[in-house]
């Protein structure tokens, strides 16, 4: 089967700093891939390259066979199919919860307001925010904001969802409510690429773990392989730091 996302030889630098040093990665339809690795290893940069929020210097990103890095592809069109959830939520501050969710469907996909609102309410209900549709998005708690952000991305009916440390900015006691939403999404068969430091979640939900180190994919495999029996010394070292304070 053709992978939904296929990355070949991806390289990216910021000035003199080479952050991605040739990444190859395939993501199959319906697969949940978790990317783990030390801070600064390039996880966020890789994820942001996947919808070209960062422009790579070289390499290809094929989404359903279309190359995003090609100057002639309809980037805005492809981005509609690639949902993204940010660490800092990035809800539109000038819109309430419902308008956050309907803005893109209405302005990009030209869906009539009523239909867009029905879809939005359905997704907001699914993330447990039915009572907040008219709320000011700035007044929500972090966990609520992140769930709105997920619903907002889902309203575009994406084929793949990218998550960049969606729970890192949250208080420990509300991390769970966001992870629950993501767990549900995975169960419904959504293709997901998740950068996370939540090792227990990664182990439970993902089909594949990708360990990044200094701009390369050092190791990948099923959670059992990577967590249970890491091949690389650096992976072991990285995981042991988590195992110390949290029993996996």
């Amino acid at each position: 089967m053709e992978p939904i996302l296929s990355i070949r030889g991806l390289e990216k630098s910021f000035g003199d700093l080479k952050v991605l040093k040739g990444i190859d990665l395939d993501v199959q339809r319906g697969e949940v891939v978790c990317i783990i690795g030390a801070s600064g290893s390039g996880k966020s940069t890789l994820l942001r390259c996947l919808n070209l929020l960062e422009e790579p210097e070289s390499g290809q990103i094929l989404f359903n066979g279309e190359d995003l890095t090609d100057i002639d592809t309809d980037l805005d069109g492809l981005r509609q199919k690639i949902g993204m959830v940010f660490q800092s939520f990035n809800l539109f501050n000038n819109k309430n919860v419902l308008d956050n969710c309907t803005l893109a469907p209405m302005s990009v996909r030209r869906i009539p307001r009523q239909q867009a609102e029905e879809t939005a309410i359905r997704h907001l209900e699914a993330v447990g925010l039915k009572d907040f549709i008219r709320a000011d998005s700035r007044r929500l708690s972090g966990g609520q904001k992140q769930r709105v952000a997920i619903a907002r991305a889902l309203c575009m009916e994406p084929e793949i969802m990218l998550f960049d440390e969606p729970t890192s900015a949250l208080d420990p006691e509300i991390v769970g409510e966001v992870l629950d939403v993501m767990r549900n999404l995975a169960r419904q068969g959504m293709t997901m690429v998740v950068v996370t430091h939540e090792m227990a979640f990664a182990r439970e939900v993902s089909d594949r773990i990708v360990f990044m180190d200094q701009g390369v994919i050092l190791e990948q495999g099923t959670p059992a392989e990577v967590f249970g029996n890491p091949k690389e010394a650096r992976t072991r070292e990285f995981l042991s730091r988590y195992l110390e304070d949290k029993a996996l």
């Binding site: 929020l53 805005d76 949902g83 993204m84 809800l91 893109a104 991305a153």
Partner: peptide
Amino acid sequence: QTEAARSLGM
């Protein structure tokens, strides 16, 4: 804010 909008295809 811009990144979120662009990521939705705007």
